[in-house]
């Protein structure tokens, strides 16, 4: 992954480095060599050294947490990332948590009361929500709720927090954070909820047909115990594996959603960095995104292991 961004920036035709070199040559009448060195200083590497050496140096710095400096603002990329990350982590994490939880609950009830009005309404809702892109939902939310109906104080809800409120672990600040996070979180929830609901419904349906559910019923277990430990836990398993995939998807969508809501997270700053061609920042954000995807994969595996003993104990005595 890091290797990939490394190559992308240095070696691709029309890569930012050679563009910068050309630009410097054109604008400041420098020779190729001068321009190369100047650009090298900007990009924080020495273009005259062999590629492999550059690569090892880059990787070494990376391991020490040094991601270079922003081309535009000269601020260390690491600092910027640490500033952006909490916003995205908070909004995406909260959105995912809510939609996953709600999706499981509703999906299970849909399967439980299949054929009922509730099921039909929810299935229609889920299919519609599943089919509509997240930014379309976001725009419709702004247009319908913010502009046409004026239910939401839309203009005040943009951004990450209201300027002027002192950050700190105080109730008014936390409420303000939630107030501003409402739009992105709501969008994430609405767009991913449909998928969770439908998957959970079909998964629950197949679980309901399992013998052990009939046996558990025959044992006279309480409805609650039946729904949680017997139906819910087994039906959830296939969804957990999808959790990691959806993290990548939501983070991708966050680029647009955060831009729309002017939410100061990784996504909006990636968009900005791309527009102003700030390659070191791009590289840094990319790295964080890739790490988060890998991390969520590990997390999903752990969660799966927690829920399914067959995986936890390895396969040595599975029949």
């Amino acid at each position: 992954m890091t290797t990939f961004t490394f190559i992308l920036i240095r070696q691709m035709p029309g890569n930012p480095f050679s563009i910068k070199v050309e630009q410097l040559m054109r604008e400041q009448n420098l020779t190729v060599e001068e321009a190369t060195n100047r650009a090298g200083a900007l990009f924080d590497f020495d273009p005259n050294r062999p590629l492999l050496e550059q690569y090892t140096e880059y990787m070494g710095k990376l391991l020490r947490g040094d991601l270079g400096k922003s081309i535009i603002s000269s601020e260390p990329v690491m600092n910027m990332l640490l500033r952006f990350l909490p916003w995205t982590l908070f909004s995406v994490g909260l959105g995912l948590l809510i939609s996953f939880g709600l999706g499981i609950l509703i999906g299970m009830l849909m399967a439980y009361w299949r054929g009922s009005l509730f099921d039909n309404v929810m299935t229609a809702f889920a299919s519609v929500m599943y089919g509509i892109p997240d930014y379309v939902i976001a725009l419709l939310l702004i247009i319908v709720a913010g502009v046409q109906l004026r239910i939401l104080p839309f203009a005040q809800m943009l951004g990450g927090s209201t300027p002027g409120i002192e950050p700190g672990f105080r109730l008014d600040y936390i409420l303000d954070l939630l107030f501003h996070a409402f739009l992105p979180v709501f969008t994430y929830v609405i767009t991913s909820l449909g998928g969770w609901m439908l998957t959970m419904k079909s998964s629950t349906m197949s679980t309901l047909g399992e013998d052990y559910i009939t046996v558990a019923r025959a044992r006279g277990l309480s409805q609650r115990r039946l729904l949680t430990a017997y139906i819910g836990r087994n039906a959830m398993l296939p969804l957990v594996t999808r959790l990691a995939i959806s993290v990548g998807f939501i983070v991708g969508g966050a680029v647009i959603i955060e831009t729309l809501y002017q939410y100061p997270g990784l996504g909006r700053n990636l968009a900005t960095a791309i527009l102003v061609r700030d390659y070191t920042v791009m590289q840094g954000i990319f790295l964080v995104i890739a790490i988060s995807v890998v991390f969520s994969n590990i997390l999903a595996d752990l969660l799966f292991g927690l829920l399914d003993p067959r995986v936890r104990l390895g396969k040595e005595d599975a029949s």
Partner: peptide, 20 residues
């Protein structure tokens, strides 16, 4: 697998803007 670890949309953004 390698391509799958990178979220598609951000990558598409970067590539599309770099390659114009």
């Amino acid at each position: 697998n390698f391509i799958l670890t990178i979220p598609q949309f951000p990558l598409l953004l970067v590539l599309a803007s770099v390659l114009t």
